[in-house]
Design a protein around this nucleic acid. Structure first.
Lengths: 221, 221
DNA sequence: ACTTTACCCTACCGGCGGTACAGTTTTCCG
DNA sequence: CGGAAAACTGTACCGCCGGTAGGGTAAAGT
């Protein structure tokens, strides 16, 4: 749920991208940083173009208004997010065969990944747009919904393979349990930010991992 | 983590409050609604004074700037929140003696409480201010921190009494577990809003309840 | 060569947060 | 009842920011 990985691929694709697209990407990069730090409303176009070294006209050449910037940011964010989650949970599948262990490994890796972020998780644009600072259009809201449903599908698939082997010790709805991963990550980010304790997010993910373990493994009496 | 309760008390105290304070309260009421729906940045002073039936000068008589409005909103929100949490978890203590059961009942009541909100939980100002749309001053950030730490203390106290009786089935840090209540609520609100499914929050709280149950009760083999 | 892309420059508009300050009504309290 | 303090109103103004309009231009593709 973050960037920073595959910068090698980015650098390579940088070559084949046109100049326009590279400028656009630069704007998005700067904007995402600013939006996650200060919010969308507090991120002025002036500031973006200043840092990007372009003019106002240049900005509006790439984005017809601030709403389009928001949409582009969200698309980019969701895309990068998917990539990272793919990598994290694929790694679990490479290491072991048992679906429960795969999931537990994935959660551990995810926790380590967010732990290693020097100044904490930068935040999730989906949450930013939920506590919308402006009234976003339907497309943005739909994108948001789609992204969250994508997470559900991803984790639900994993859980389905787990329950085939391990009957849960408590009756739980698997969609809701799948959603709990997203819930804990989103909530953990809020808590980390509120307390100024970046590692909290990792802790909360590890707690969720404990829950999954308890739920699917037989306890010794 | 919401208002709507004790309107009787409000109506009673309405009498003894001066006119100024009543106007101030009205502004805050309108503002909270608007901020939770549209965000702080999208909530214009113009709009507030229009709905409150006062003038711009009137507004700035009560609040020296928008930041002070933010601070007052947060204070009010935290206060109401504390009241509700007090009621919810006190009810559990009235019904049974066992600390684990008390907590489980409290979580259930909390889930029902947020379930009953017709248009979903209005949102949490703490989260809004985390994904800050403007750069709030230190006082606001400190207030936010204090509120979250208050939640931790509250739930930690409950958990302490539980572990005295029930040894946990997994090694967990009790502060982190206490924080998980807040995490799930904050995350659940984000998820509810993103999906447009108000009941999700209640589901996630009930899932957390399952976790607590699994963690502290001996499982049958 | 020539079209398209990717900008720059200047000027302007309206909305909003915020200030200043003088004037007016309402409320409270002795 | 009277006077002071509280609770506003009215008007005028400032600067920032999002956004528009439109003309000009260097460089990249073809």
């Amino acid at each position: 749920m973050n960037q920073t990985i595959d910068q090698a691929a980015d650098a390579a694709s940088e070559q084949i991208k046109g100049k326009g697209e590279r400028t656009r990407d630069r704007i998005l990069e700067i904007a995402e940083n600013s939006v996650l730090n200060k919010g969308f409303g507090a991120t002025s176009i002036e500031e973006l173009i200043c840092e990007a070294g372009i003019t106002k006209s240049g900005f509006f050449y790439h984005f017809k208004d601030k709403n389009e910037l928001a949409r582009a940011l969200l698309l980019r964010h969701i895309e990068q997010d998917e990539k990272i989650l793919d990598q994290v949970f694929l790694r679990g599948q490479e290491l072991v065969d048992d679906p429960l262990q795969q999931f537990l490994i994935g959660l551990k890796i995810l926790a380590e990944l967010v732990e290693d972020l020097p100044q904490g998780h930068p935040g999730c644009l989906i949450a930013v747009y939920c506590y919308q600072e402006r009234l976003f259009d339907n497309e943005v809201r739909l994108l948001n919904r789609q992204a969250v449903l994508g997470w559900r599908t991803r984790f639900r698939a994993i859980l389905d393979r787990i329950v085939d082997v391990y009957p849960p010790n408590e009756p739980v709805d698997l969609d809701e349990l799948a959603d709990m991963v997203s819930t804990v990550v989103e909530g953990g980010i809020v808590m980390s930010k509120a307390l100024g304790r970046p590692h909290m997010l990792a802790n909360q993910i590890m707690l969720l991992r404990s829950f999954v373990k308890l739920l699917f493994t037989r306890q010794p009496v």
